[in-house]
Amino acid sequence: PKDEAKKKVKEAIKRGDEETAKRIAKKYNLDWDDAKREADEER
Rank of each mutant, 00 (worst) to 15 (best):
I13D: 00
P1G: 15
K22Q: 08
K2W: 12
E11I: 04
K8D: 06
K14G: 08
E38K: 03
A35T: 11
E42C: 10
P1I: 15
E42K: 06
A35Y: 09
D17A: 03
R43F: 13
K22D: 02
A25P: 01
K7W: 11
P1F: 14
E19A: 12
G16F: 03
K36I: 13
I13H: 01
K36R: 09
Y28F: 12
V9T: 02
R43D: 13
A5C: 09
E11G: 03
K36C: 07
E18P: 07
K14R: 13
I24E: 02
I13T: 01
K7F: 10
K22T: 02
P1W: 14
A25W: 00
G16C: 07
N29R: 03
A21V: 00
P1A: 14
E19T: 10
I24F: 03
K14I: 13
D34W: 08
K2H: 12
K7N: 11
L30N: 00
E19H: 07
N29D: 12
I24C: 07
K26F: 11
K14L: 15
Y28C: 02
E11W: 04
A39H: 07
A25M: 02
L30F: 04
A39Y: 12
T20M: 13
D40G: 08
E4P: 03
A21F: 00
W32Y: 15
A12H: 07
V9E: 00
D34G: 07
K22F: 06
R37F: 07
D40T: 10
D40M: 10
G16V: 01
K22L: 09
Y28W: 13
K27M: 14
E41H: 09
W32C: 02
K2R: 14
A21S: 05
A25Q: 01
A39W: 09
E38P: 03
E18W: 15
K2F: 14
K10G: 04
R37A: 10
E4S: 10
A35N: 04
A5W: 14
R43P: 11
K27V: 09
I13F: 05
D34A: 14
L30I: 15
D33N: 11
K8G: 04
P1T: 15
T20H: 09
R15S: 08
L30W: 05
E41P: 05
K8Y: 12
L30T: 02
K2E: 13
K22H: 06
D40V: 09
R15F: 05
E42D: 10
Y28A: 04
Y28H: 09
A35L: 15
D33T: 09
I24H: 01
A5V: 08
A12T: 02
D17E: 05
E41I: 10
N29V: 02
T20Y: 12
D40R: 07
L30V: 15
E4L: 13
K2M: 14
E4H: 11
D31S: 10
E38D: 09
N29H: 10
E4R: 11
L30S: 01
A25Y: 01
A35K: 02
D40F: 12
E18V: 14
K26A: 15
R23G: 07
R23Y: 10
G16Y: 03
K8F: 11
T20G: 09
D34N: 10
E19I: 09
K2Q: 14
W32L: 09
I13Y: 09
I13P: 00
D40E: 14
E19G: 06
V9A: 04
E42G: 08
K7G: 05
L30Q: 01
E11K: 03
K27N: 07
D34I: 10
A12R: 01
I24M: 08
A39G: 05
D3K: 08
E41N: 13
K7C: 14
